[in-house]
């Protein structure tokens, strides 16, 4: 059906039912959920939302000619909000996993990264994922790092603790032995913020981060439009530029 007619029909339907239900027409802004609490991807300074994800989504919006509206909420609410149709996608370094692929469709990856173990500065006993046996390890609730740890052959010997936020702080305080996060933001946290932390060993397991969309017609259509934009942004160097601006390195191409 031509877009014009469909939009008119949708408009009529909306007017007829007088329901305030959100109708996803092409002109509607894309509602992007993020936690606002994941430095340097999404965070707030003096009331201004910024970070890699913010710049990236704005570039995508510009490319496909849609307004981007950011909705910040606690990380644990993001997936529920996507599923219930309150937002259209999540820009929060969401890693592609088989479990998530069962429920959502993903865009092309726009960040390639690895999982990194981080400890309190001076703790040289932990040198990577192998030395986590018998240790307490913090991960963000609902993050794929939790699953990554649980998939290790010796997962039963690791005391995995899930957090809503502030895992860096708890490791810096020495309350848990280590946290696992993606290498890029772990490096950022250590270099830019005054927390006594250090990287423990090399990153393990490659991870690909992308934008999830609802697995329905509208969701897949939006995913396709966003994919075109991502391809263009990769080609013309915009994405690499955004990556270097926030992360000091280009992590947006496959290794």
């Amino acid at each position: 059906m031509p877009k014009m007619i469909r939009r008119t029909l949708l408009g009529l339907a909306a007017a007829a039912t007088l329901a305030a239900a959100p109708v996803a027409a092409a002109a509607d802004p894309i509602r992007v959920g993020m936690s606002g609490g994941y430095f340097p991807f999404t965070f707030v300074e003096q009331d201004e939302l910024k970070g890699f994800e913010v710049d990236f989504m704005n570039a995508v919006g510009e490319e496909i000619g849609a307004e981007i509206r950011f909705e910040t909420m606690a990380f644990s609410g993001l997936i529920g909000a996507l599923q219930s149709g309150r937002i259209d996608t999540v820009a929060n370094q969401i890693t592609i996993t088989p479990e998530r692929q069962e429920r959502f469709v993903f865009s092309e990856p726009y960040v390639y990264d690895g999982a990194q173990v981080v400890t309190r500065r001076g703790n040289d006993e932990i040198t990577g994922p192998e030395s986590l046996k018998g240790r307490s390890v913090a991960v963000n609730l609902g993050s794929n790092f939790e699953q990554l740890l649980r998939d290790l052959p010796y997962a039963g010997e690791i005391d995995i603790r899930t957090y809503e936020s502030n895992i860096e702080q708890d490791v810096a305080l020495g309350r848990v032995d280590a946290f696992v996060m993606d290498r890029v933001s772990a490096t950022q946290v250590i270099s830019e913020r005054n927390l006594p932390l250090q990287l423990a060993g090399k990153p393990f397991s490659t991870i690909e981060n992308a934008l999830p969309f609802r697995d329905d017609e509208a969701g897949r259509a939006l995913r396709d439009r966003v994919n075109e934009a991502i391809a263009t942004l990769k080609e013309n160097g915009t994405l690499a530029e955004i990556s270097r601006k926030w992360l000091g390195d280009d992590v947006t191409t496959a290794p």
């Binding site: 606002g36 609410g77 309150r86 936020s165 502030n166």
Partner: peptide, 23 residues
């Protein structure tokens, strides 16, 4: 309310703290 996407006093604080790490 921040878990429902409403940035009120606590939500604003959490986001600011995430940016500054000055918990």
């Amino acid at each position: 309310a921040f878990t429902l996407g409403v940035t009120e006093l606590m939500g604003a604080t959490q986001k600011e703290a995430a940016g500054s790490f000055l918990y």
